Amino acid sequence: EQDLHEIYQGEVRYARDAFEGLRLMDALIAVKRGVPGATLPELKQRRVKTTAHSAVEQRPEEGAARSDVAIDNPVPEPPFFGTRVVKGIQLKEYASWLDEGALFKGQWG
């Protein structure tokens, strides 16, 4: 919240979940409508101090010990990029792979 507040003009607020977001929106609407005593909550203070990370890659000194991990392994090429539509597969061929609990309970409630 603090980082975004420093970058963007206007109000920038963070809500950790939908319920906090609803309370935040209620406060925002009350302020915009001019409700007496309505204020936005204070900006949350950063809990973790920021540290500057060095963007410079550090290389081991000459003669430094290296791991025995091979670095000359070939990187495989993907067969295609993006998405493909596959047609002509019967439902009975993949129905046994479906997790009905995840489908009906997780996705459809």
Rank of each mutant, 00 (worst) to 15 (best):
V31Y: 04
V31S: 01
K32N: 07
K32F: 11
K32M: 11
R33I: 06
P36T: 14
P36K: 07
G37C: 07
G37R: 09
G37F: 02
T39H: 15
T39G: 02
P41H: 07
P41S: 01
E42G: 03
L43R: 09
K44I: 02
K44P: 00
Q45H: 04
Q45Y: 04
Q45M: 09
R46F: 00
R46L: 09
R46Q: 11
R47Q: 04
V48L: 10
T50N: 04
T50R: 12
T50L: 11
T51H: 12
A52Q: 12
H53G: 03
S54T: 11
S54A: 06
S54F: 04
S54W: 03
S54D: 15
S54G: 04
A55D: 08
A55Y: 10
A55G: 14
A55S: 12
V56P: 01
V56M: 05
V56Q: 13
V56S: 02
V56E: 15
E57M: 12
R59H: 15
P60K: 11
E61L: 11
E61V: 04
E61Y: 00
E62L: 03
E62M: 03
E62Q: 12
E62F: 06
G63T: 06
A64P: 04
A64D: 14
A65R: 03
A65Y: 09
A65T: 12
R66Y: 13
D68K: 09
D68E: 15
D68S: 08
V69K: 12
A70V: 12
I71S: 01
I71D: 07
D72W: 02
D72T: 06
D72G: 00
N73V: 07
N73C: 00
P74Y: 09
P74L: 15
P74Q: 05
P74H: 05
V75M: 06
V75A: 02
V75F: 07
P76M: 14
E77M: 14
E77F: 14
P78R: 13
P79T: 15
P79F: 14
P79C: 04
F80W: 11
F80C: 01
F80P: 02
F80L: 07
